[in-house]
């Protein structure tokens, strides 16, 4: 059984990022888009954690960055859900393609 190296983590984070990106571009449902954006954030976070663990010193800068990013993600989610709620009540649909005319 091989040891888990930095590259394994990087591959996982890349996969998460790509899934999130493709999903946020392709999905029609607004909630799915939101979830995919969270995927992207999660991928980035894993990247940070991996680098902090393998390359960084004892200060743990990467973990601090993860805290920040999680906070940003939460705030963004709150704002986005609020906006989507309004859009939904206005358009009566959860399809992103219908939101094109702002």
């Amino acid at each position: 059984m091989a040891e888990i190296t930095l590259y394994h983590y990087l591959v996982i984070s890349l996969l998460l990022f790509i899934i999130g990106l493709v999903g946020s571009i392709m999905c029609k449902n607004i909630i799915k888009v939101l979830i995919c954006i969270e995927f992207i954030l999660a991928g980035v976070n894993i990247n940070f954690a991996a680098f902090a663990n393998y390359c960084g010193g004892a200060e743990g800068d990467g973990f601090v960055m993860i805290l920040f990013y999680t906070g940003i993600g939460a705030v963004e989610l709150a704002v986005a859900i609020y906006i989507f709620y309004f859009m939904y009540s206005k358009k009566q649909t959860d399809n992103v393609y219908q939101y094109g005319d702002l």
């Binding site: 946020s24 571009i25 094109g100 702002l102």
Partner: peptide, 13 residues
């Protein structure tokens, strides 16, 4: 210029 946010996202990426 479709007006679709996701398209613009893709271009930006």
């Amino acid at each position: 210029q479709t007006g679709n946010i996701q398209r613009y996202n893709l271009y930006a990426f």
